[in-house]
Write a protein that binds this DNA or RNA. Structure first.
Lengths: 331, 331
DNA sequence: TTGTAGGCGTTATCAC
DNA sequence: GTGATAACGCCTACAA
């Protein structure tokens, strides 16, 4: 059903129909009602392609997210959808893990006439290219550069988590997730502050899934002098790591403390509920939308706005908050 | 950059540019090359709104999925994205849990000119309405009615899982997830086949998340005569249920067997790895795309095609496959 | 082989 | 208040 058909039906012009549908005050009340009624009757819905073409906007925002298989990102996308909806936008999401090339993914989105782009995260090498697109952009998990971004204070998240473990009496703490992340630098900072050292062999790099956590923990348990606690890159890896501890016939947290980042829902329902750091998804999504929407149609901007969100420690069981610190110290 | 600009640049007509870009044999080789080169140079990308408007197609498929917060559905969406990509389509997904009203969600998708719709699942009351839209449709988790659909044999999945527990010696088996699902009827059928009975109080209905599993199991454990095994509506509920067992100071599977459906990734990394039934996501997604794409542009069909996918039992630890059946029998 | 002309459904600018 | 009319960018007869 098109405006044209409604116009025919009512023997008026298309222009009037268009105005009436948009509740213009210029159109007579009686005509307006007739049009609205007719539209309702025929279940009229504007053709978005035509609206887009005419307006030069699609009311669609592209979202590049690393993977839907990761509960944190799936949740985040969910929240982004919700936040954008409040602004009349819809999210068109392409997970980069299936899209192959990142730029190809962006191009696929671009071909859909997106009005803006949310990218979580970005590789630095794609960054200049993205800016050259002249498209409203907002990033998350990318604090550097001259861009609008929303980020949780990752370094701080590593710091508070580490300090919590130290506070529980842990002296030998390992870290899974590579040596150049912000979370890691927070870890480092906390150790330094408390005069603690770590060891090369307690630091493991690798991916961020269950399997990597499991593998890393296996290796760590085989060490002659293993740590008493492991901080994992994210909750997924932490869960994998816990499983490795169980498989070795040991207990979490009695024999080994394991903690992660993200606060995914399942962490709360494990044998030993996971101690972790909350990265507030709804808030991140809200801020992303808040930054992006005004840029669409508005000026393609001056100075970048960076929103930093505070991480929040979630203490549950897997850190051994209940343990005797002396026992740990002597182990 | 538009075709018009390219035409100006090269002093030829827009029509020729259009033909050249689509590699029409009608255009001279040299002109074609010039156009392509120029398009490349200016990074020309067709305006999808215009293409859609002209072609009456958007190369976008709407996907209605219940929730991204559920790993199974997030994965499934992922696979659907991948499958559609192979056909040149992109998925526009709206999780119905945030969209509010189902029909509103469909309308939002419709306004985006989707060429087809994948709905997982559908409520029966919306079904006739959907058909009236005259839009290529494919469903999953909806085996009835005159529609194209892709479904795992849910009754069978309940049957094989129940029979597996029976085979392990369980005589008292409960079911979480309501009394009128196909999975439940499979459960019932397996009990009947083996001459086993269940009890009202061992059957719990409720939602499908962690929390519901936890609550249900708590109630069950408080029963004077509890079952020895619980089949949960899905893996999420099963994980919640396991947590309740742990919280009660008991063990899975030594004191209580817990199993689920879906085979979500995390099930493999629990303290007691979850016994479950695999619902092959990639295959479901593939079939959905296979059914839908030909319907788009093609005839709006004759007889419905129903693809039934076989469920597959995944035996891990939480069912107590290792336990002595005598001990169970006497308990 | 290339160009002209009309249409897709909507919005916006004018006259009337 | 209302109705022509042009424009958005692309596609496709049909004409040249």
């Amino acid at each position: 059903m098109t405006q044209r058909r409604i116009a025919q039906e009512l023997n008026i012009s298309i222009a009037t129909v268009s105005l009436a549908l948009r509740n213009s005050p210029k159109v007579k009340e009686s005509t307006r009602r007739a049009v609205l009624e007719c539209a309702e009757k025929f279940d009229y819905r504007p053709n978005q392609a035509a609206v887009s073409l005419s307006a030069g906007k699609s009311f669609t925002v592209g979202v590049l997210i690393s993977s839907l298989r990761h509960p944190f990102y799936a949740d985040l996308l969910n929240e982004i959808q919700r936040a954008l909806r409040d602004y009349g936008y819809i999210a068109l999401c392409l997970p980069t893990d299936i899209a192959g090339d990142y730029r190809e993914a962006v191009k696929a989105l671009l071909a859909r006439n997106i009005d803006g782009l949310i990218s979580i995260p970005v590789k630095i090498e794609d960054y200049a290219w993205l800016r050259s697109l002249n498209l409203p952009l907002v990033f998350s998990e990318h604090q550097d550069g001259e861009v609008d971004s929303v980020s949780v204070d990752r370094k701080k998240s590593g710091f508070i988590l580490t300090e919590h473990l130290i506070g529980l009496g842990h002296l030998k703490i390992g870290f899974l997730g590579g040596g150049n992340s912000l979370r890691f630098s927070g870890f480092r900072a906390a150790l330094d502050k408390h005069g603690l050292a770590t060891r090369e062999e307690w630091i493991r790099s690798g991916g961020d899934g269950y399997e990597n956590g499991l593998r890393a923990m296996r290796e760590i348990l085989a060490l002659p002098n293993p740590p008493t606690a492991l901080i994992c890159h994210n909750d997924l890896a932490a869960i994998g790591a816990m499983r490795a501890v169980y498989s070795a016939g040991k207990s979490v947290p009695d024999d080994f403390a394991v903690v992660g980042f993200d606060n995914i829902a399942e962490g709360n329902y494990l044998r030993s509920a996971l101690t972790t750091v909350e990265y507030p998804r709804a808030e991140i999504a809200q801020k992303l939308a808040e930054l992006l929407v005004p840029k669409i149609g508005g000026a393609l901007d001056n100075k970048p706005r960076k929103t930093i969100i505070e991480p929040r420690l979630i203490v549950r069981e897997s850190c051994g908050a209940c343990l005797n610190r002396n026992r740990l110290a002597e182990s």
